[in-house]
């Protein structure tokens, strides 16, 4: 999937105007990630964000006494990484490729600098990030209810 095709798949990119996409396309880097490779690890500096072109990425919590717990899986068009957008710019979870994965990587420092200089891009991008974060918060809250044992039959 090319970067321009990705726009149709990615809610974050779809919300942006052409000139803003032009900027992002000028700094984007296409990266292949092998299965089981760590994209970023918890508490590391959040230096980039990613949009998945193909494959699957899991957000997980390392468990010292056992296998890591998967919090959420992300797929085609999904945004990987929110912590780059606000201080202290440190990842809260580990992201790991669950399959051979291709991502578009965006340098967070360059994006933050451009957002500060171009408030139109800043507003659009941060609104888009807020929407993605809100959806994840809402679904996380529903999952906290632990609904399925009460399913009808």
């Amino acid at each position: 999937m090319s970067f321009s095709e990705l726009r149709n798949q990615s809610a974050v990119l779809a919300a942006l105007e052409d000139e803003h996409l032009e900027f992002l396309s000028s700094i984007v880097e296409e990266v292949e990630i092998a299965q089981d490779s760590v994209v970023f690890d918890e508490d590391d500096s959040a230096e980039a964000f990613y949009i998945i072109a193909s494959g699957r990425v899991g957000l997980e919590v390392p468990v010292p006494t056992g296998t890591p717990m998967l919090l959420e899986t992300l797929g085609n068009g999904d945004l990987v990484g929110l912590s780059w957008a606000s201080e202290p710019y440190r990842w809260k979870w580990r992201a790991k490729a669950l399959s051979p994965t291709r991502v578009y990587r965006f340098d967070a420092e360059k994006v933050r600098a451009r957002c500060a200089a171009d408030t139109s891009l800043g507003a659009q991008l941060y609104l888009s990030i807020a929407k993605a974060a809100m959806m994840r918060l809402q679904t996380a809250r529903v999952r906290l209810l632990d609904l399925y044992p009460g399913a009808p039959g």
């Binding site: 296998t67 919090l71 899986t73």
Partner: peptide, 11 residues
């Protein structure tokens, strides 16, 4: 799930 799960995790 743990990371050996082949499907998705989420709502």
């Amino acid at each position: 799930a743990t990371s050996d799960w082949w499907g998705h995790v989420g709502l």
